[in-house]
Design a protein around this nucleic acid. Sequence first.
DNA 1: CACGCATTGTGAAACGTTTCATAGCCTCGC
DNA 2: GCGAGGCTATGAAACGTTTCACAATGCGTG
Lengths: 340, 340
Amino acid sequence: MAASIKEVAQRAGVSLGTVSNVLNRPDAVAPQTRQRVLEAIKELGYVRNDSARQLRAGRSRTVAIVVLDVSNPFFTDVVRGAETVVEAAGGMLVVCSSGEDAARERHHLDLLEEQRVRGLLITPVGDDHHDRLERLVARGIPVVLVDRGSGHSHRCSVAVDDRLGGRLAAEHLVECGHRAVAFVGGPLAIPQVADRHAGAAAALAEHGADLRVLETRSLTVAAGRQAAESICALPPAQRPTALFCANDLLALGVLQGLTVGGLRVPQDIALVGYDDIEFAGAAAVPLTSVRQPREQLGRTAAQMLLEEAENDGDHDHRHVVFQPQLVVRQSTAGAQHPPG
Amino acid sequence: MAASIKEVAQRAGVSLGTVSNVLNRPDAVAPQTRQRVLEAIKELGYVRNDSARQLRAGRSRTVAIVVLDVSNPFFTDVVRGAETVVEAAGGMLVVCSSGEDAARERHHLDLLEEQRVRGLLITPVGDDHHDRLERLVARGIPVVLVDRGSGHSHRCSVAVDDRLGGRLAAEHLVECGHRAVAFVGGPLAIPQVADRHAGAAAALAEHGADLRVLETRSLTVAAGRQAAESICALPPAQRPTALFCANDLLALGVLQGLTVGGLRVPQDIALVGYDDIEFAGAAAVPLTSVRQPREQLGRTAAQMLLEEAENDGDHDHRHVVFQPQLVVRQSTAGAQHPPG
DNA sequence: CACGCATTGTGAAACGTTTCATAGCCTCGC
DNA sequence: GCGAGGCTATGAAACGTTTCACAATGCGTG
């Protein structure tokens, strides 16, 4: 059914090796022969079998990226950035989603290892799979951590300074006069979440305030709505005057939930998100958010990966850290809160 | 470097075939032997080489989905639905994005054909690549069209009735008293866009109104903002009183652009989107939109694909069509427009 | 005219699996 | 005690490439 190189060779009246040469080193074969082979290929509808090629060549042309959540616009932008670079290099980017679930992440890593992918971009769920990543590297599959700094010097990473991001958010809220601030986000096992919280907590501590935590099960709009409900249920005296959300999806959900519960943003409660996804500025109350260079994150990560895959063996592992940037919009632009 | 089955066999003191049996038919090998083999596997850190497996087995375990735009929440939801089904079946879903670009779509199809994927879910950019899809099917790779009906009876498809969707939107606008309606969307070569437009145009025609078209280059927020600018530039007398956008991204962009240009939604211009993505309800002015069963679309498509891949050869191609549903929100809830 | 060299083409080996026909060994029933 | 038949394990073939050492051919040069 599926024509192989052998049949092409037969039809063109040349040897196996010649057909392979036409495919891979066209210059090494006489124009006339090449022509004959190309015609045979077209006539038979021959398409190269990549499994065989990979098996023989020992290396694949596909690069994988494992993200926490495909539906999160933050990650889709990162993916787009990486895609650009990988495709420009003639490769293919496959996208896998762990859904913030360690088991699914592990499953994906296993399959990708079996496939001997060219390289791996990953935002790990937690710190659970270091050994697995280690093994990939040992096998010659470069790994670049995305949106996550790495203490490990034998691995590249691209990240945004999440502690700084948390600090920026918190300091902005303090300047607006807020003291009773709560952090909405989770699971705290996700390093980005923990860092954003830590940065904000540190900044608040310097001003003698502390940061309550409202841990969520995930970083989704739905989780945000749920969190908002529990905030609305609080007696007004115990309610925080400002919320810092671990990402924009959460913040959008919180915004919806607060509105439903009759609380106004920013008059009753100020709101800061994180990521500055495209929808943050288009929200019912445009969201103050901490912007990350999303596409650039993806591009840089992919570039470093390809570079490492190129000169395998010797390669200086780099750790690129971008700076986040506060974007102030209406969700915190309310009247100054009375201090205390 | 990478241990192969042969070394495992050697270490466990068994033959090649036995190791393979342990991997694929564990019951066919004596418990004691199996144990020895498993230990050898663990000690050597052996991981199966999928290229070799695929080459020999002739079939892959990965299913691909080619969407128009990874950053569009509509598609990420479809992907999530498909993912669920494929992973439950032990497979892997790889996501490719054509970016509404026929050349990229072709490139992806070529690579996927080389990889001999198990099956393909695709929302084609246009009608350009029928021959290529045909060839995939001929090669034994089932193809299911997503979000796109198919005249072709030798192919499954899952779609939502886009003409009906367009009609729902238009009729709602007519009921609100609008007569001067414009359609914002493009490229019109994308079948969904064309159908939504056609449905709306037909409905308006029945009421003696016609539908101006403002064709955009793509279905993105940015394209929407741009379209809004040109609308704001129009002399008020020529301005439509309502806009029907081909999708929600576009509508969100239009909403932003109109606001910037000083036009109020819905008082000055009413707005209807399409898809009812999660962010539609959270927008500055919550968006009236035509809802599609996104995840279900993905799930159904994947199920049909796997089913076809299972019993290859005989298979009844089905064409599932879901009904869209109008969700009315604030962006059209303004005062009744005077007729005319 | 013979020699070396450049240009093309050849055929076999190798990549790491899965599969399949076969062989050895037991046990069971007669 | 012997043949039938069930378990296990074996080894070779096959999957479709790429690669590589080598052969054949033709050409210019000394």
